[in-house]
Design a protein around this nucleic acid. Structure first.
Lengths: 131, 131
DNA sequence: CTTGACCTTCCCGTGACTGGAACCCTTATC
DNA sequence: GATAAGGGTTCCAGTCACGGGAAGGTCAAG
């Protein structure tokens, strides 16, 4: 099938699929007209990639996961290792964002938000550790 | 003061400070030797920028916040608007990441993670919406 | 034969920096 | 006066994972 069809099936933009070929994640055949010809196995790979990306895995993680997926002799421990690492990263981000949210919420709540210039948000941002 | 000193005071890397000058967020003077000369007001601006960036505000938000900070006749409502918009963005990110975490946690828990190839994580990623 | 949808490659831009090369200035030491 | 260390300067390239758009080739329908 052509790139448009596989794009629709996988939900990935054609641009993204071309990019994935560029970096060697997928290797479709080529027809006489130069068009990419995707096999079912290519579509399944792209589907896998789309799901992994949607879970926030980096492209390099995806590359490793794909290799493990293809490897019938893999150890599930290797997969789990990658997933746990990524999970930790996600949790770190959530922690960071939650801290930002809490601070920002405090400032927003303290600000009356009218047409006067007095503003606890700006005061909070201007707080100095400078000597 | 020179860039090294203001970098230490604000906690921002010198590279970042040069970048901020490049994009017009701060405009230090120049000495006869070509070195940037930062006034206290520059250091305070950079401190403000560092705090706003640490709360995840984009550079363009920072630019607007800085302008409001400098404007004695600002309306605090304008500041609050920016902050609330950013807060909503943060909350959206937290929601997205939490969904990823939940899915991933489910997969990781289901995976025994030993030397056998059978792996619920890979199975989960391979699940297809393809016909 | 033409139209329009699809495909191709190629190059630039994104955000917010970071790293590195090549070079200049200042200060201290020998 | 020479030299070395530790500042500073500019400029260019790279990051990550694509997206936009130009210029052009291909295919099916009318």
């Amino acid at each position: 099938m052509n790139i448009g069809e596989v794009a629709e099936k996988t939900g990935l933009p054609a641009k993204t699929i071309r990019y994935y070929e560029d970096i060697g994640l997928v290797r479709p055949l080529r027809g006489d007209n130069g068009y990419r010809q995707f096999r079912d196995s290519d579509a399944h790979k792209l589907n896998f990639l789309g799901r992994a990306r949607a879970l926030g895995f980096s492209i390099e993680d995806c590359r490793d996961l794909l290799a493990l997926w293809e490897d019938q002799d893999r150890a599930s421990a290797d997969v789990r290792q990658i997933a746990k690492g990524h999970l930790a990263e996600i949790e770190r981000k959530i922690t960071d964002l939650s801290a930002m949210r809490d601070t920002l919420q405090g400032l927003v709540r303290a600000c009356h938000g009218d047409d006067r210039p007095d503003c606890p948000i700006l005061n909070g941002l201007a707080e100095t550790g400078l000597s």
